[in-house]
Design a protein around this nucleic acid. Structure first.
Lengths: 209, 209, 209, 209
DNA sequence: GGCTAAGCGAGACGGTACGTCTAGTCTTGGG
DNA sequence: CCCAAGACTAGACGTACCGTCTCGCTTAGCC
């Protein structure tokens, strides 16, 4: 959690959950409207009808607020349909990520990842709360595919995930070309089949399943 | 160029090249010392013994200065040894990039890429002046490898480069693990051989050459 | 009283006298240490080990607390030795005031009188609880002196007191010179004998008695 | 000067006299409207159409601004009609001061003197720039009266002034009664003739002249 | 003995002013 | 037209208090 800890807290007036949600909602809305950089903590406080101190009591900076707001907004929807075909399931996962990047959350992730380059705590939170759950989900799928013999047994999971997902983040960050589904398919295919052996066409890809 | 254009400019006092270099040097040094975020244009001007207007006359913002300073510092050393073995040459290229990321310029690139998420002009400059030359160099090598039959003939060059390099930038940005040479080798191998076919050991890798 | 009234109040938990005294003591000590301006109600509450509401239940603001604390500290010691010689008694009274002003309470009175310029309620309290008792005491003495023929019969008591005491407060407030006993004597003599008629030396002053 | 010093200052953009005057005017107007305490530096800056830094570059705090604004507003009008009758001249001086205290500047002086109890620099400025010129003017008159034999030759000038003026400031500060001209006359008469010798009526006062 | 009511310490709440900082622009005198 | 210096407006920052408001918990008088 980026949010400052609040142990059981018996004494004193409890923190207002209402204010908490108002802050997150205001932050999210403002960031969607004006962009991360243009939003000030003042503006969030004003929009949430909340004193500035109430914000500083809970988060150390703007990025931490937006991180929390973002994660609450995307929810715990890392669950994704497990299919009979594990590699296909992997491709679906990649497509879903690309879709998220193309949607309203794309700009948010760009901003958070950009900001994380200057803020170790945010970087840590981004890793732990956004990246890791998705990597673990991918790992399960990869292991399944290996068990079924759909993938080689000796691949390194971390490296494989980097190869598959690194390209997606790379495009998001460098922004040279759109993150279309067909691009995702191409990336998936190149990595899965490698650059060396004979390449199947995208259509014959179904042979894999 | 991020730097504001300065046409032939006949009239008036010419711009001081000395000031120009002093600014770049000051910017670089300060960023190395204190980090990109902690450096102000004021500080750069003070360190370079230069008026603030002299800076604004040439660059629109801090990121543009640092970008120029960075590129001047790394120089045009994109040249790298072309070998008989084209894929091996590719791996060497990747290792060199990883080495640069591990060195003093790593933090700089992290910062510039992070900042570029908020600054379209910087993003454009980063793409054109840092990313593109390296991609083109890689493309030459890839094409060579394809011509020699070391790689399949039907791979998409852009996708291939994304797969190979995306993982490196991903690690730089997410920062969950070090960019060691052995990691580069592993990444290289996974992408080149794919996740599906039988995997050669790293030692037998030499068979490729 | 600046303190908020607390009618007989039958029901509920009675107000803690202990807390009351702790607050006054804390306020006084903090003001002595750090000066009136530097003390916050928070600090008083913390030092007195008391909730903030307990303070606000009793006093409307910091000045009111300090006023009460001050008056409790100086006590009801307006009694002063009545002598056979009424004018001499007056001079003694003036010396005692100057002595108080030179002591630890001087800074307190400066602060309270300064603050009273911005707070009508405090001004009223200052007049009623500090100034008036002393003026009335002085009036008694003046009347006595008039009755004995030591002073003219047609002087205006209020004006006379203003002339005698105004200079003392003036020095306290403007602070250009110390409030020494010899200064008090000089002030006393100038006012009593006037600026016009022939002036007796301070030694021959005893002739007055 | 309370205002921060600005030595000859050859280099750089000179400080804007326009901004300076705008700030003083805004400060004065706001203080007249809302009272010293209610005015914030923000509000002054806003009203003067000036950045906050421009204010902080010149004055350390609100009191210093208001002090300067006040003195510029009252101007150097300490000159007052010198009459043949020096003591009468003194009484006129006292009346003029009382009149000023009753006017719009009265509240300002109350506030400044009140604030000066907490701010040694302001106190010093108040003494040097407001009190001293007036004391010196009074001293000249007193000396003249002594030379003409209208006052005793052995009075202490400082004490005499304290007695005459102390009462006026005392009333201003304590605020128990209005500073009417008749009160000033009474105060003047009591101090000049003393509390002891036979008192002339206010009418027969003219005998003095 | 239970009920009601007020007081208690703790600490969160909405506000507001503070003084500092940075950005980007403008205005001097002097090349 | 450039230069260094240093002013300018604008506005975000994080801190400090203020005076009020919940919390859960006493501590009293009254039924």
């Amino acid at each position: 959690m980026l949010q400052k800890v609040n142990e059981p807290a018996r004494k004193g007036r409890p923190r207002s959950e209402e204010a908490h949600q108002a802050i997150l909602a205001a932050a999210l809305q403002l960031v969607f409207e004006d962009g991360f950089r243009s939003v000030s903590i003042d503006a969030i406080a004003a929009k949430a009808d909340v004193g500035r101190a109430t914000i500083y009591r809970r988060w150390p900076n703007k990025a931490a607020i937006v991180m929390d707001a973002f994660l609450q907004d995307v929810g715990p929807n890392i669950s994704f349909p497990s299919r009979a075909d594990a590699t296909e399931s992997l491709r679906t996962q990649m497509r879903l990520l690309a879709k998220a990047f193309r949607g309203k959350h794309g700009a948010l992730i760009k901003a958070l990842l950009g900001e994380a380059q200057f803020d170790p705590e945010l970087a840590e939170a981004f890793r732990e709360r956004w990246i890791r759950p998705r990597r673990e989900s991918a790992m399960v799928t990869l292991r399944e595919a290996m068990a079924k013999g759909q993938l080689r047994a000796d691949i390194d999971l971390d490296t494989a995930i980097d190869a598959l997902y690194g390209g997606i983040y790379y495009r998001l960050q460098i922004g040279n070309a759109p993150l279309s589904d067909s691009y995702i398919d191409s990336l998936f295919q190149h990595v899965v089949y490698g650059l060396r052996g004979p390449m199947q066409s995208l259509d014959s890809d179904t042979a894999l399943k």
